[in-house]
Structure formats: C-alpha cells, structure tokens
Nucleic acid binder design. Structure first.
Length: 525
RNA sequence: GCCCCCUUCGUCUAGUGGCCUAGGACACUGGGUUUUCAUCCCAGCGACAGGGGUUCGAGUCCCCUAGGGGGUGCCA
C-alpha cells in the first residue's frame, strides 16, 4: 500500500447530522491529514424517500463549520444508479449473481453469490478444519442454486435453522446415520449453481464440510474472521430495480479509489460481504477500520431521536467548532499521553488508528463544557466580542444597553463563560424588571439585617441620594462593615448570586433604575 | 436463538508481562486566592467485571462465566 491513502465520509442525508456520524468524519479527516492522503465526501442519497435537499445542505453546513472540507467534489450516489445496475448485470454475466424471488408474490431481486476472497496482506480466506454438524431429525435439508438450508441441533438440543451461500460449504457432504454419503456438493457444484440440480432430503443425519473463513486485518480491532458457512447470499438489486446499499457502497468506493474505509462498528459484519463483492468485481479491497460507537447517558447508542445529539444543536448552544472537534476526537481515541487539549495540527500529528479504543464511548457534556470554556478563554478578544455582539444583536432586551456597556460587560464575564448560550442569561443587566433568582434573593436579602439594610438603602435612594451616598449612610447608621453590605447590594440590584466586581458592574447599570431594581427585589422576597 | 466484537475510577482515558503502591482529565469533596461568583492553585475521594489457568512475575497472555454492544432486512 504505497499509494497515497484515500478515505471518505459517506453519510446518508436523512435529517440532521448526528454527533456519531460527524465523529466518523473527523476520524477520517484526521487519518487522511496525518497520512498526507485525501479526504473525500460521498452523499449516499439513494433512499429517495428519506433523503432531502435540506438534509444535504445541513450536512454541508456542518462540515463547513467544523472545517471538514473534502479534497474533491462530493460524489452523489443517486447519480450513479446506472453504473450500479450495470455492475449488477455484469456480476450476473460472470456467474457471481443471480435473479431470484423468495416467494411467488415477490418480484425477483438480484442476489450476490457470497464467495471466498483472494489472499492479500490485509485480507483473505483460510480453512480452519473439517466440520461435522449434526442435523435435527425429521427436518428438511435443501441445496439449490440459491444456497443451502438445514436445521441443525443447538447446544441445548433445540432446532437451529441455518442457511448459507453455496460457496460457504463448497465441499459439503450430506451423510446418513451410518455415515454413508447421500449427497456430495463438490461434484455437482456447477450443476447446482446453474439450477440444473437440486437436492432435498428429510433423512440426513449430519453435514460434513471444510470450514473456511474470511478474515481481514481491521485497522483498529486487529484480525477479524467470520465463517463462510454463517454467511448467506445477499440482495444487491431489489425487486423494484433499485440498487442496495452494499452494491452502491462498494462500487462507489471503487469509483472514488478509496483505500481505507473507516466507518462505525455497526458495519463490521458488512465488511465480510463487501470483501466478497470486491473479489467478484475483480477489484482489490480497501483496508477496513471500525470505530466504536458513541453512546448516550443510558449507555445506549444515540438514535436519531436523541434530541441533543445533533451537531447543529451544539453550534446553536454556543459550542466552538474547535472545542467540539477536539472533544469528539478524544472520544474513543487518545494521543497515548496525557494531553487532552490539542489543536487541529496536534491532533493530525498524533493521530493513529492503533490508538483508537475498541469499546463504545459515552458522551460527557460536562467535560465538553469544560473544554469549550478553555477554548473560549483562548479566543482572540476581538473574535470573542464579535461573537457575543452577534448573539446580543438578536436579543430584543439587549437594546436596553449601549454597545460600549455590553462590550465592557462581556469582557468582565469572559472568565466565567463556558458556552455562548450563557450570554442569553445576561438580560438582567439591561432591565430592572428581570426574573429574580430565588436562591440568590434568599442569600443576599434573606437575613433580617440584610433586609433592613436594603430597605434603608431604598429609602435613601428614593429620597434622591446617589448609590454611594446611600451605601455610606446605611453602613454608618447600622454600624455595618462596608464589605458586609456588598452581598445585599449585589443581590438587590442584579438579582445574581455572584458575578464580576461589584463596583464595575454598578458603574455599567443605569443609575436611574437602582431604586426600582431594589424595590422589585425586595417585593419578590 | 445463532454469529461477531467489547469490558481499567461515576465518565473519557494512560497502560502492548517487571518502571503499577495503576497515571492524567472531567465531575465530586475539602482548603487557599477573591468583597461575592467564576477563573487559578493545592489536597482528597475513586477502577483493572468475576473465576480459573500460564509465568519467577499478569491490568497486560489463555480458558470459562457474567454483563454490554453489533449483526442476523428486498434499511443504511
């Protein structure tokens, strides 16, 4: 494998882009950049029922936001339908596929004949010895051009129906109770394949065959294998004439000259079939690597129903693209050392499939929040201010303050911000009549002395004193340490349990509304 | 049911037979800094799923059990 690696991200544009999906894209991009290869995009929009232009647009937006630009124009799978169907026809001509209806009502579909694959460095077929399978008595066994069906005996002695492709047990012998051969597939394989010969029996006692398995070296999971006698032929073109995922996916990977297929764990079993498809097509197979799934807080994989798992929502909630990218890269992968905050270049530099975890990873929003907070602190100030300003420009209540006020306030709030969404809670700065936080009120005005001080303060403000005069006077009258008065003033005027330096804060607020703010706070108590 | 895969603190992870008394991060708890809150600093809590082997030595290798995930579609 000396050519430059080519990888692809191949989502189906149905609805919003999912967090698990985009992580697959991130790993692909990281791999491509690390290897100096190409990162491609393929839109698998063959499911016309569910694929929409809106979804394609949402996909592009998300990829753009995360700077996951592909190196070549995206390939739209739906436009390759004719090529897919032509390839299916070719497979039939070559004896690798056949048309067949499983019942009289169904229109015939095209089935691919699952077969052994040639040995290469990364995959192959090997024998693992002679097998003898006991058959359930009085259950039918059938061998025809579409495969082998039988009923075995499970470990618990129960009937275990099974089926496999013809090539799975090409040297099959059906034996009776005495061990005499009732049927030998090896001698009849061609006749069976062509449909000239079928074998059916109720009397078989056991099956004898050489077990062979398809194996491949997975980039993250190591060597994986699956017995051919556990694989059935698969549909590649439906009865209605539309190509199936397996066919389209493999053909398009060939078209895009994809060298490494990095995809989710849910595709592991597909890889054996896809490998067989490559073999039948006479193409060399890619290297496969399967990524662990992301699961939700219940430990279940995110489904499309998990509302908070859409990439667009993370963006809307004020997460930074770099932070989400960093966090997602760390979900199921680590650089192998203690580093956790890595920028894109560092991630690319450190990335390797061998360091990818093999078990599912759970999203931890708190850790993501923390990381996002760090990225927010690192943002150049003008960018940060521009983002905040943009957000505020869409809030009607923000008109209550000048741009200068918001700018100074945004700077004060910066160290305590984890997500931009928190900016939406800033309305208390602009209005006197905002929603009070009950806990804060209790803490700052709940005690008798606090309340007394606040009421005295209000009285003086209403009588025309300035805030500083009023505070000084109250401290003197009630023999209060000025510091002790801080909290009641803070809560009375801002309604917030904490926040930036009080004096600076008060300087920003409309002094005319101090009395009103205090009055509302006291009344809300 | 059958097939495949996985299993280290609550969570993400380091670990590739001796450097592991199992390290880091988030979260949590306590302390320091701060008029408050946050930031920041320090400390604490906290895991090799269970059982058998192999080995002088096992989180690391093998087997069994349990649990989890994936597959078993004319979905992708």
């Amino acid at each position: 494998m000396t050519a430059t690696p080519r990888v692809r991200f191949a989502p189906s544009p149905t609805g919003q882009v999912h967090i698990g999906n985009i992580r697959v894209a991130i790993f692909n991009a990281l791999f491509a950049r690390h290897e100096g290869g190409h990162f491609l995009l393929r839109v698998e929009d063959t499911d016309l029922e569910r694929s929409t232009p809106e979804a394609v647009e949402a996909l592009m937006e998300v990829m753009d936001w995360l700077e996951l630009g592909a190196d070549e124009e995206p390939l739209f799978q739906s436009r390759r339908r004719e090529a897919h169907l032509a390839a299916a026809e070719q497979l039939i001509q070559g004896g690798h596929a056949y048309r067949h209806a499983r019942s009289a009502e169904e229109a015939p579909a095209t089935f691919f004949r699952v077969q052994p694959i040639p040995d290469t460095e990364h995959s192959g077929t090997r024998s693992v010895g002679e097998q003898q399978l006991a058959l359930m008595a009085d259950h039918p066994l059938r061998v025809d051009f579409s495969g082998i069906q039988w009923v075995g005996v499970s470990r618990k002695g129960k009937a275990d129906p099974a089926a496999c492709c013809l090539e799975g047990m090409a040297d099959l012998k059906v034996l009776d109770a005495e061990g005499a051969v009732l049927f030998s597939l090896a001698e009849n394989l061609d006749a069976v394949k062509s449909g000239e010969l079928e074998f059916e029996s109720e009397a078989g006692a056991s099956l004898q065959f050489t077990r062979r398995e398809i194996w491949f070296k997975d980039g993250v999971k190591g060597e994986l294998a699956k017995s051919l006698d556990a694989m059935k032929d698969l549909v590649i073109v439906r009865g209605d004439g539309s190509p199936v995922f397996h066919l389209a996916n493999v053909l398009d990977d060939i078209e895009q000259r994809v060298s490494h297929v990095i995809r989710g764990d849910d595709h592991v079993e597909n890889s054996y079939r896809h490998l067989a498809l490559y073999a039948a097509l006479g193409e060399s197979a890619p290297v496969y690597a399967h990524l662990p799934m992301i699961v939700n807080e219940q430990g279940k994989p995110y489904s499309k129903r998990d509302g908070d798992a859409f990439v667009g929502d993370f963006r809307a909630k004020g997460y930074l693209a770099e932070a989400l990218f960093n966090y997602l890269a760390l979900l199921g992968w680590s650089p192998g050392d203690d580093r956790e905050k890595l920028n894109r270049d560092e991630l690319i530099e450190a990335f390797s499939l061998e360091q990818v975890q093999q078990s599912p990873a759970q999203m931890d929003f708190r850790k993501l929040n923390h990381l996002n907070g760090q990225y927010l602190q690192d943002l150049p100030q003008d960018l940060y201010l521009a983002d905040v300003r943009d957000l505020l420009s869409r809030q009607p209540w923000a008109e209550g303050c000048s741009l200068d006020t918001w700018t100074s306030f945004a700077l004060l709030m910066r160290p305590r911000l984890q997500r931009y969404a928190e900016v939406l809670d800033w309305s208390w700065l602009a209005q006197a009549d905002f929603e009070r936080n009950e806990k804060a009120l209790k803490r700052g005005l709940g005690k008798a002395w606090q309340r007394n001080a606040a009421e005295a303060l209000l009285e003086k403000l209403e009588a025309g004193s300035s805030l500083s005069e009023a505070r000084e006077a109250v401290c003197a009258e009630q023999e209060l340490d000025p510091n002790k008065l801080m909290l009641p003033v803070r809560v009375g005027l801002t309604g917030q349990p904490g926040g930036p330096d009080l004096e600076e804060l008060l300087g920003m607020m409309d002094s005319g509304s101090f009395a009103e703010r205090l009055r509302i706070s006291l009344a809300a108590l």
